[in-house]
Design a protein around this nucleic acid. Structure first.
Lengths: 341, 341
DNA sequence: CTGTTAGCGCTTTCAC
DNA sequence: GTGAAAGCGCTAACAG
């Protein structure tokens, strides 16, 4: 049996409710008493019983994260950060890798205080409209049945990167990041890329500036880059649609004996610290995942508090869009030869 | 506010404890009453409050899974199955991607009923010796500070695969699955491979039969296989150390215009359904992940029940070793040319 | 078979 | 400041 506040109370010679207050750092307890109780609690290895606490306080102190797609470096890193962020605010994070609707059902039985829904693909969310009043925050796919959401201004990120390359003098830029299968998020980036190229008046913003790839993994970036770089009229700059792809592209360049940035410039989408750790630190665009994590956590906590105040879910459909930044590292430079025409 | 058993009781005109019994399908309630109550509960959208239930029953109905490494197809698939298996037995699964000690601490506060610890690398588990009597089951690294564990007989799996290839007539077999960095699990497989080759009396079970790779991802298998297959004296058979590696190897063969199994035989480690879905269904060894999942779940539940009975953790250090199987699909055949000498 | 009575461990009034 | 008392939603004896 674990240690309860009663055990502590007995040992400290106070009432158990005083212990409760002391543990919650209530101002209603003398500092001295508080210190003593804390010491004893520590010594006895006391762990609050979450079940009991949540029973009375109506809050479980847990945020459930629905995380259907488990295979992306950036997402994993993001989850880790969110986890830490929430932990700092006293919340524990639970992950579910089930389908969104099943996961939400489980979380609901658990009475989690909020649910964070990572939804890359448009899976059906039939009949799950914030059921028992648990606030749901949606990340990554703002176009969702009215849930509050938080997303990255992907288009803008892409445009910024393209402009950066363009301003350096690049006119022949290829984008690697549009997998077959038509993932809406990726499509959005690919078309922003083409659009921005046109807007800048590039001579030939041809469809072929977007390389065909089959997935978003390291290998896909590798293959596509290898192919592009061995061409006689190879692009002077490459833009990778994700960290993993960009890693693959860097590898391909290295193996092909093509120097970055002397022979080819490379920009990567995804603003994660790892970009800095590649063979050559890679210039990247996107919203820093630390920012995303912090914003997500703050928003989640705000939603929880709102829910407590009023009876129902959070403000319907409030959608936050995070603005991306460009971080120039060493993988981009003006093209070697004077800009071709 | 959610629906409670009292609400149901009132509506059904019975006492709340009758509702409780009915909901738990107790034989102490008349079928008719039971049916009526169930109907009302359903209609009102009743969800049991896990916090309350766990408070009195001392069980939370939750199994915590510590899952530090998030990037492997086989592991992800395994988690998914375990999740389903546990759910069938009425347990919810919570994942934590934190470090093992932190994760265990969180799970403890949550009073999970058991913890499943995936430990590939030997991370330190300092001072976490099944603390508040929560049973911990360890998977994947039996050599652990006395925790009950479940593991796969990796060595045997490797030997079986080698023997299969050998019996088909292959004498020149290469193993792709030993990443730099010295992951103990992978080292174990690599040395079993060499050892079995020697045991079978292969002419030259040279160290070079084990290809150098830098990781366990798709790409690593791809690169290694590409390299091996372009050699004049290329091996007649390849053995991949994981599903991901094997996929990469298959891709490399396809791109090199080398037919499987006519020109080269391929066996893959990891017994997962996906092996059957590759371009050519791949012969594989290992323990079916469905079996692993089921065993893990059963063991976990047994441990929970034991713990309930006696006061302390489960039988110390009981270690189960699962026996692998070979599933012959179409990627293996006798070597094309009569065995070289 | 059904209802009554205790709590589970904790937070929160409300007295002292 | 501190303690006593009530009760969160539920299960588990125990009576009826």
């Amino acid at each position: 049996m674990s240690v309860t506040i009663k055990d502590i109370a007995e040992r400290a010679g106070v009432s158990f409710s005083t212990v409760s207050k002391a543990l919650r750092n209530s101002p209603l307890v003398q500092e001295k008493t508080k210190a003593k109780i804390l010491a004893i609690a520590e010594e006895m290895g006391y762990r609050p019983n979450i079940a009991a606490r949540s029973l009375v306080s109506k809050r479980s102190g847990v945020v459930g994260v629905v995380w259907p797609s488990v295979e992306r470096t950036t997402l994993s890193a993001l989850i880790t950060l969110i986890n830490a962020e929430l932990e700092d605010s006293g919340y524990a994070t639970l992950l579910s890798i089930n389908r969104a609707d099943a996961a939400i059902e489980t979380f609901r039985r658990f009475q989690v205080d909020a649910i964070l829904l990572f939804s890359e693909k448009d899976e059906p969310l039939l009949g799950v409209p914030s059921p028992s009043g648990i606030p749901i925050l949606c990340y990554g796919n703002a176009v969702r049945s009215g849930f509050p959401s938080l997303d990255v201004n992907r288009q803008k990120a892409v445009r910024i990167a393209v402009r950066h390359l363009y301003e350096l003098g690049h006119r022949d830029i290829a984008y690697i990041g549009r997998p077959e299968g038509g993932d809406p998020l990726q499509e959005e980036k690919a078309s922003a890329f083409l659009d921005e190229l046109r807007r800048l008046g590039a001579r030939e913003p041809a469809e072929k500036a977007v390389a065909a790839i089959s997935g978003m993994e390291f290998h896909d970036g590798y293959v596509a880059a290898k192919e592009l770089l061995k061409r006689r009229d190879r692009p002077t700059a490459l833009f990778g649609g994700s960290y993993d792809l960009t890693r693959g592209m860097m590898r391909a360049a290295a193996e092909s004996g093509i120097r970055v940035p002397e022979d080819v410039s490379i920009v990567g989408y995804d603003h994660i610290p790892q970009m800095d750790n590649l063979e050559v630190p890679v210039t990247s665009v996107g919203v820093d995942i630390a920012t995303i994590a912090a914003t997500l956590a703050r928003r989640l906590i705000a939603m929880i508090e709102e829910t407590g105040a009023r009876g129902n879910g959070a403000a319907e459909g409030s959608a936050i869009l995070l603005e991306p930044e460009l971080v120039v590292r060493t993988s981009t430079a003006p093209p070697a030869a004077p800009a071709r025409r």
